[in-house]
Design a protein around this nucleic acid. Structure first.
Lengths: 142, 142
DNA sequence: CAGTATCCAGCGCGATACTG
DNA sequence: CAGTATCGCGCTGGATACTG
């Protein structure tokens, strides 16, 4: 596998992709990078109603990738915290400028942000974008 | 839309995701970043049998994102070249360290590369990985 | 050569209900 | 609280054939 150096690089890129391309993975890393430790439900509220199923899966993936760590406290009610591993922090340092670059692009082209919002981040029922869209539609149908 | 600064950042991340998460987009940028100008069929051979349909769509997306540019020459047979725009080069500069980081991880953990290869990069019929996998299976069935 | 047209499969993800 | 179980849809991307 990964027969030559070139192909190895492609594999590596593929590996990053398989991590990053999960819809919520980068945002989870973003949140942990800026906020520090977070609990399961923190993500639910922070990430604009990601559903527990997708969240659970993505967290597991990131844990098994060694990018975040899970610490559970033997309390009632249970408490679990997630945080970046050193390796995750390294990734975060690389991802941060990427997000900043993206934010600047959006700033220069305001329509982009809206389009992206609609397409990628506003599927969830109660997201701010979704509500705005629903209002728009209402008004258009009048 | 993008109601507050935080949400704007999430949108930006979503924008990056929508670009990057296309299976072949990063690799196209990688190839253009390292090779310079490339033609349509160059990608087909460079990228281990990506199919023309997916390639065509991804290229269009990247063009409409302003990350790459398409130049067609009025010749017979037709010739078309793709290359990074300045904006695309900026992205490439940000993506490069990401890929290097990924390559180093894979180097430390050899199994990772194999797994990723299988999962993400070896779907196409004639990829080196695919052929190796088929051989493996044959041997196991003996 | 540089694509387009079609058809189809897999799965990522959303919604919802349930549990230790 | 921190998840798991189940179901279903839509989109991405693969294979193949065709065209200016």
């Amino acid at each position: 596998m990964c027969v030559d150096k070139e192909h190895k690089y492609l594999c590596a890129a593929g590996g990053i992709l398989s991590i990053i391309s999960k819809k919520w993975a980068l945002l989870i890393i973003y949140k942990l990078g800026t906020r520090g430790r977070l609990r399961f439900t923190d993500f639910s509220t922070e990430l604009d109603t990601i559903n527990p199923q997708a969240l659970s899966e993505t967290l597991k993936d990131l844990v098994s990738e060694g990018l975040i760590e899970r610490e559970s406290f033997p309390e009632v009610p249970p408490r679990v915290e997630y945080f970046l591993t050193p390796e995750g922090q390294t990734l975060w340092e690389l991802v941060k400028p990427l997000i900043q670059w993206a934010a600047e692009r959006d700033y220069r082209d305001k329509d982009r942000c809206d389009k992206i919002c609609r397409k990628k981040m506003c599927h969830s029922k109660n997201s701010p974008c979704k509500r705005e869209l629903q209002n728009e539609r209402k008004n258009n149908n009048l």
